[in-house]
Design a protein around this nucleic acid. Structure first.
Length: 497
RNA sequence: GGUCGGGUGGCCGAGUGGCUAGGCAGAGCUCUGCAAAAGCUUGUACAGCGGUUCGAAUCCGCUCUCGACCUCCA
């Protein structure tokens, strides 16, 4: 078990804080999900991966995690709160489908990608359209408290009023004076009192495809509102962790805080976590810049900028080799380096599952080394989910494991207990916490049986020094992406991507 | 323009006031029918200029430079 306690970098305080659950053993975790108006790209995935790790590790620590990740299927506008068009609706018109067909289509696709990428599904995946009632109720509470006003069929959050009693801008480090300065010229077209006010409820045009009745007329909820309403509903007025991408800090998350405080008078979240951007040549990956990769393109290799196809787990590993709060630059070279490294780790993982402890002469130094590695890996992940450092320890462990296998180091230098510790720690991190074990689906009994047969035959021809035949077998298998490796005592094989 | 965050060896990428991160690539060796894998050895980097300090790449200041947010964005 971990020596040190989990520390999380809290965006609110801008420093690492010891994690303490509000109601242990329960933990409420909310992460902003996708707006399902088209395919998620790799950058989106990085954020979901970050919170997958959070969820996995907290679960590993024994917490009962309720992980809520929403699906935005209404109210997300293409532009400024009162000027834009609903993204889902825009797409529906483009594809000539019902808005809900768009939502279903891209939700399905999102789920597929998550599964391929080995992301644990959330406990609850609520949708905005499924919580119109809750959102309207929240708007009512905000108005009742004097922080919202109706204007021409829409309802806005009154930031100025709010600031008379509460803080606004703490999370993103913004102050309203600054906001005023850069505000674009709205030339009186806005229904807002102040440019920094944001929409809680938006009046929709007569022809809108998605609209709902409300006390203020037909309309749709503002984008920021769904997270507040659904977070409150499923995790309570105050819950432990809320996460999302860096780019959601402002205005999205800032507005969420204001809404929750405005409606219920309670600061909604203890720890805010923000995962940094995936970049391409140093620039943020984004759909609008046209530099985004779709997971499918990556796994299939079908993208002009890709030199080859990469397996989902290699990509997952690639992302985990950096810290979630740093930007990560995407390139073929980096991806290939990660792939090679990942394969090495995967090999050790497989080796470990077959390795058995044999008693020998216990070496005190070896014992200490291994124990220290097992402690270090926990210390690393406890340090704000530092997966990069954790993986470095995994590589150190991998050296030991390989040495035992090769007989360079006797496995008997460890006592049975310490060996078990090593095995458990490596396996738990590789498979459960980092979620990297998903490569082996193609392994089945038939393949296994066939390979055993082929390698047995090959062993015989090798024994007869008929190397032409043995090489022929190896080359032919290689053509099928099956790599054959002749070890000292036995021949192993693996299917490469 | 405002706010914030970076600039680390050939590449990617952690971290830190003094102790080898790690991966990939490269070089040498061991093993091996060959290949692959594996093992061992090897590399002494922290944008620049000042300052604080016994000691800084790590703290402070300035400069250069890249990026994010301030508008939809994970």
């Amino acid at each position: 078990m971990p020596e040190t306690a989990l520390h999380i970098f809290n965006t609110l305080s801008r420093q690492k804080e010891k994690f303490e659950a509000i109601n242990p053993p329960f933990v409420g975790l909310y992460s902003c999900g996708p707006t399902v108006y088209n395919e998620v790209h790799l950058g989106n995935l990085r954020t979901f991966l970050t919170f997958d790790i959070v969820q996995r590790y907290l679960t590993h620590l024994g917490y009962k995690v309720r992980y809520v990740r929403n699906i935005t299927d209404a109210g997300h506008l293409t532009d400024d709160a009162d000027a834009g068009e609903d993204k889902i609706e825009k797409r529906a018109k483009l594809e000539q489908l019902e808005p809900m067909e768009i939502v279903q289509k891209y939700t399905n696709s999102f789920h597929e990608v998550c599964a391929i990428f080995n992301l644990t599904p959330p406990s609850i995946e609520p949708t905005a359209t499924g919580h119109i009632v809750e959102q309207i109720q929240m708007v009512k509470r905000i108005i009742a408290n004097g922080f919202g006003y109706e204007s021409n069929g829409s309802v806005y959050f009154d930031v100025k009023k709010f600031m008379e009693k509460h803080e606004y801008g703490k999370l993103s480090g913004r102050n309203v004076d600054d906001l005023l300065e850069v505000t674009r010229d709205l030339s009186g077209t806005s229904d807002k009192r102040n440019s920094y006010d944001f929409a809680l409820w938006i009046k929709t045009p007569e022809a809108a495809l998605q609209k709902w009745d409300s006390p203020w007329g037909e309309g749709c909820p503002g984008w920021h509102l769904e997270c507040s309403a659904m977070g409150t509903k499923y995790l309570g007025k105050q819950f432990d962790i809320h996460g999302g991408g860096f780019d959601l800090k402002f205005p999205h998350h800032e507005c969420e805080i204001a809404q929750s405080v405005g409606a219920d008078g309670v600061t909604p979240v203890r720890y805010w976590m923000h995962s940094n951007m995936l970049t391409v040549n140093g620039t943020k990956m984004s759909k609008s810049l046209g530099n985004s990769f779709l997971p499918k393109e990556l796994f299939g290799g079908a993208h002009p900028l890709l030199e080859k196809a990469y397996s989902p787990m290699s990509v997952r590993f690639f992302m985990l080799q950096s810290h979630y709060r740093s930007t990560l630059d995407f390139s073929n070279a980096a991806l290939q380096a990660a792939e090679r490294g990942f394969l090495r780790l995967l090999n050790s993982y497989k080796t470990l599952s077959k390795l058995e402890h044999k008693a020998g002469t216990v070496d005190a130094q070896e014992l200490l080394d291994v124990k220290q590695l097992c402690e270090a890996i926990y210390a690393n992940i406890n340090d704000d989910f530092n997966t990069a450092e954790s993986i470095a320890v995994l590589f150190d462990m991998s050296k030991k494991i390989n040495a035992y296998k090769e007989g360079v180091l006797s496995i008997g230098t460890l006592d049975a207990e310490t060996y078990e510790l090593l095995k458990t720690t490596f396996t738990v991190f590789f498979r459960d916490i980092l979620g990297l074990d998903k490569e082996e689906e193609h392994d089945n009994n038939v393949t296994e049986g066939l390979m055993n047969l082929i390698l047995e035959l090959r062993k015989q021809v090798r024994a007869n020094k008929d190397f032409a035949s043995s090489d022929k077998i190896r080359d032919a298998l290689n053509e099928l992406n099956i790599k054959v490796k002749d070890g000292k005592d036995e021949t192993t094989w693996s299917i490469e991507q």
